[in-house]
């Protein structure tokens, strides 16, 4: 097995919330669904309510799907950002940095693993949440028959798989948009004890200065676009359009800056801080 797999495993042990939060949400969802299912009165009353609204009931299953996908995406994004801000900071504060640096692992590999964990593994875990939720709905629709179908509309196995694939596709775009910010967070978290605060306050200050003091709105727009892009992508109906709206020049600029941040982060890591 490649060393990076052991390193990913170590990150999973270290940041348990990454697996626990999705699992908790799944169980939580399960409980809610179970309570609805076993209380057929409420199902009836709900279906009654929806039948009053006519056409909308058909959209409910789609609405539920997009709700699942949206919240899983939001959870993924939240976990990724929290992880990126915390990972280097934690090593530094608890003193284990010296131990990790004493292992024959290059700084580039460490960075690749941390980025891979935040931008690939965390979305994958959250996609498992989406998949299991979708499959669960499908399973319920199979066993529980008419009551729920009237509520959820048609739920098919392939429909469940399709929403999962769509979620993954969307998360790839989100991760791509998050990459420059991820590099920024990795760099900042090595020099500051409050990386998220520094980045957010820094971005807003810069934006404010640009638009109101120097009336250089292009830069302010750029910062705003790049900072909000992951979230915009998550909520967008047509995610690919978001890239078009932001524009290729901004994207290029963001990746260039991200690359610089990565280089900077590697440089700080290379000359690891030594206590004493």
């Amino acid at each position: 097995m490649h060393p990076s797999l052991f390193m990913l495993e170590k990150e999973l042990i270290e940041h348990k919330i990454v697996t626990r939060l999705p699992l908790f949400l799944l169980i939580f969802g399960l409980l809610i669904l179970g309570s609805i299912m076993f209380n057929s009165d409420s199902v009836n009353s709900m279906s009654l309510q929806f039948s009053y609204q006519g056409d909308l009931s058909a959209d409910f299953s789609q609405g539920l799907s997009s709700f699942i996908s949206m919240s899983a995406g939001a959870v993924s994004l939240l976990l990724s950002i929290m992880y990126l801000a915390k990972t280097f900071l934690k090593e530094r504060q608890e003193g284990s940095l010296m131990f990790w640096r004493s292992m024959p692992v290059s700084d580039a590999l460490t960075h690749a693993v941390k980025l891979g964990f935040a931008l690939i593994l965390i979305p994958l875990i959250c996609s498992a949440l989406v998949l299991s939720a979708e499959l669960l709905l499908w399973f319920i629709s199979l066993t529980n028959g008419q009551n729920l179908i009237s509520l959820l509309g048609e739920v098919s196995f392939f429909g469940a798989l399709l929403s999962w694939l769509l979620f993954m596709a969307k998360m790839i775009l989100v991760s791509l948009a998050l990459l420059p910010l991820a590099c920024l967070l990795l760099a900042v978290s090595q020099v500051s004890n409050f990386p998220l605060l520094v980045v957010v306050v820094g971005a807003y200050t810069l934006e404010f200065l640009c638009s109101y003091v120097f009336s250089f709105t292009a830069l302010a727009d750029f910062i705003d676009d790049i900072m909000s892009m992951p979230l915009t992508l998550l909520t967008a109906q047509q995610p690919l359009m978001v890239f078009a709206q932001v524009g290729w020049l901004s994207c290029l600029g963001a990746y260039l800056l991200g690359g610089l941040c990565l280089l900077f982060s590697l440089l700080i890591r290379r000359q690891g801080k030594f206590a004493g």
């Binding site: 060393p3 042990i13 003193g95 284990s96 940095l97 010296m98 004493s102 292992m103 024959p104």
Partner: peptide, 23 residues
Amino acid sequence: SDVNVLPEWMTVAQILRYTSGVH
């Protein structure tokens, strides 16, 4: 060193497994 640098949140078995993977 005189101060502990081992990650406190790992178990002994986990740190051995990690080391076997990267070393």
